[in-house]
């Protein structure tokens, strides 16, 4: 009890002990070791690097992102230095993060099921604490076809390929699979990746969307379509997490539209184990993590919650709530 009041935000995620449930989401300032360390210093309990693929990608031309009023839209286009170079960056990031006590998540994407396994094996050399498998980026559809997150079969095939590629390692890192919100039944996808051996689920990635400038009579993004994040995504994300939490017994990184401590509490109540934070960095600066931590702690104190674990799943139906508390 004493420990809890001193550090009420400390919480468990898989085998990891986090000092805060806030997780820097992939693709937000996770492009360098120094920026990952900055998010950690600002108060993130765990940080996720930008997704990397098999080979370097420049990404899409400008405009790549903007704040359209109800949220953000982006089509960065998975800019990354390729898996080999990324592994070196991740190793350096780990070195900077270790003294801060903040675990590192590597994020990977690929164009084929087999390539997912190859990229996972390469980034695993840097010994990240978790590998997040991004099967849900909406911004590269032209090259890669429907995101793998669209069907239970393809989502499971990628999960399985990554598990197999890591199995031969002496200490394989756990794997979280990142799901897309724009599917008819996200619970089905969650069950499929759970059966294929995922250790956790990250939900959700951005929602495909478009912003048109009426005077220009053009979509604003050079890629024309992009992913919606920020406030507009929050209700979508809450619902997705709520469905997944009832479908599987895996821990969930609940992500989408969390800007404040109360938003984070809502995400935990929907069934998230920890809470991803991305767009908040635009709305509140990199200091967002410190602010959200303080607000969450304040909310918990005011409402009489002693730990993050007490919030988990509170908004689920009673039966699911009890099951979730017992398992995750």
């Amino acid at each position: 009890m004493h420990d809890r009041t001193k550090a009420p935000l400390a919480c468990d995620f898989l085998h990891l002990r986090l000092r805060s449930p806030l997780v820097l989401a992939s693709g937000i300032i996770g492009t360098s070791p120094t920026l990952l360390a900055r998010a950690a210093r600002s108060g993130a309990g765990m940080v996720t690097a930008k997704s990397c693929g098999p080979t370097p990608r420049a990404g899409h031309p400008n405009p790549v992102a903007l704040d359209w009023g109800g949220g953000l839209i982006n089509a960065i286009g998975l800019t990354n230095p390729g898996a080999e170079h990324e592994a070196a960056l991740l190793a350096e990031a780990k070195r900077l993060l270790e003294p801060l006590g903040v675990p590192l998540v590597a994020s990977i994407f690929a164009g084929t099921v087999a390539e997912f396994g190859q990229v996972a094996a390469v980034v695993a050399q840097a010994q990240p604490d978790l590998i997040e498998v991004n099967i849900s980026c909406p911004n590269v559809g032209d090259e890669f076809g429907t995101p793998f997150a669209g069907l239970p079969e393809s989502a499971a095939a990628v999960t399985d390929a990554v598990r197999r590629a890591l199995a031969s390692l002496p200490q394989p890192p756990p794997v979280s699979v990142k799901l897309a919100p724009n599917v008819p039944d996200i619970a089905r996808i969650a069950r499929a990746v759970a059966e294929a051996g995922a250790d956790a689920i990250t939900a959700v990635n951005t929602m495909p969307g478009m912003v048109i400038d009426a005077e220009a009579a053009r979509p604003v993004l050079a890629n024309r379509v992009g992913g919606i994040s920020g406030p507009a995504l929050k209700p979508v994300a809450l619902r997705a997490v709520y469905e997944i939490a009832q479908a599987v017994d895996l821990p969930i990184i609940g992500t989408g539209g969390v800007l404040t401590g109360v938003d984070a509490a809502e995400m935990l109540m929907a069934g998230a184990t920890v809470v991803g934070v991305g767009s908040a960095v635009w709305y509140r600066g990199v200091e967002a993590f410190a602010q959200i931590n303080a607000e969450l702690q304040q909310f918990m104190a005011a409402q009489g919650y002693g730990s993050v674990a007490e919030l988990r799943g509170l908004a689920l139906p009673p039966a699911a709530r009890e099951r979730r508390c017992a398992h995750v």
Binding site: S32, T34, L35, V64, I76, T79, W282
Partner: peptide, 21 residues
Amino acid sequence: MRCAVGLCGSCEVGAGWLTCL
């Protein structure tokens, strides 16, 4: 500069400073 809203990381300068934010 790419996103100019502090998210994409392309304008980092020095040890973690974002030129746009």
